[in-house]
Design a protein around this nucleic acid. Sequence first.
DNA 1: TACAACACGTGACTC
DNA 2: TGAGTCACGTGTTGT
Lengths: 238, 238
Amino acid sequence: MQMDSYYFHDDAHLFAGCGVPGSPDLPFADLIASLSEPLPAVVESQSAFREYRGVGLELPGTARGGTGNGINIHRRMMGVLGRMGPAAEEEERPQHQQQQAAGAVESSRGFRHMMRERQRREKLSQSYADLYAMVSSRSKQDKNSIVQSAAVYIHELKVAKEQLQRRNDELKAKILGHDEQQQCVKVQFEVDEPSSSVDSMIGALTRLKSMNVKTRGIHSILSGQRLTTEMNVETTVS
Amino acid sequence: MQMDSYYFHDDAHLFAGCGVPGSPDLPFADLIASLSEPLPAVVESQSAFREYRGVGLELPGTARGGTGNGINIHRRMMGVLGRMGPAAEEEERPQHQQQQAAGAVESSRGFRHMMRERQRREKLSQSYADLYAMVSSRSKQDKNSIVQSAAVYIHELKVAKEQLQRRNDELKAKILGHDEQQQCVKVQFEVDEPSSSVDSMIGALTRLKSMNVKTRGIHSILSGQRLTTEMNVETTVS
DNA sequence: TACAACACGTGACTC
DNA sequence: TGAGTCACGTGTTGT
């Protein structure tokens, strides 16, 4: 008898989504959807897993961790071969406490393992959905596209951020006059009525300063009613 | 007899990685590692897949694509129930060409399916490795961490890029004088020798222009040897 | 010891 | 029909 070894526990329908993968608007949330109609308790195939890890021969000589991967499949095949024993379906066993406890332990272990894996998959699906929400404009809904698009998107964003940062620094340097392409020019003008023009010039200088025009030096000559001022201000070549 | 239904083809060891998942420096490339020692041809379990998709009952009444996810597990369970038939292990069959061809087709189909799935997994692992190279500084190596870190990283990069873009626009507006916080101030000065000062003023204006100081208006009065100029220039309050 | 993470083969489903 | 994708349960390995 060919057993499919699917674990259809009675409580499994509380967790199993078995969703529609190609659903276009719910990409990876099909596991969360709870089932509406209760299953009428068709099978109790827990006993089919009684021999679960029954003849697990261990083969401790396999060097784990490295390049020797071919041994693993051999090992597993040997396990499959060794596990080809009697099926032991749901007939009454000798009710020794040891066997009962062992069976319960084994069964609960497998069940917990399955549940953990199911939760893990669900969590991963949620992470996929979250990531897809970030790249949905440039990616398809399948996992590979999501991961690839995320990688290229992160790369693009990194590059864009870097050159934006550079451009920002350039602009800031331009404003602050810390550009190395700056030049000094002479701005020369004269005002009369220096008693009042001083204030106006100070105001003008203040304005110029507020315009981030940095003055390198000021040479002023007050002669009579005229104030001749020569400023070295920094400017930049465009 | 319980059959595990693992597909251990003879050529399978050419592709099967069976890697070490927790290898710390090769996170997802363990599939690529080829096997060194050839397996000495232990089993030929192709005939175990002779009844592969033998009793696939279809249940066409299930509305696919939507919220009806509970039907799927029922359907699959019905499939499992219905497939609990005679096993048909490796005994000699009547060698009809039709059955032979069918068996070859089925077997090769299952094998190709397995290979495709293996390639798909390998591709996905490569994508994971690529994505991990993008987020390796802030993520662990497991899949869930990679996907989650990628999501939050993309979010952070988006936010950073946006505010960098905003800051950039602000700086650009500050430079170009397109700030809405700008004010007009009067810069008033006078020069004599207007015949030569025109050029100097033009030069000064050019310099001011090259400094991105935008002039709103110029009012010049030439009286005698003096040029009185009043400019409205835009400036910004800090 | 139990748990977490993974790769695997497989059936279901979609296009 | 066939290729592609997915979720599933399972065995294995590292912590």
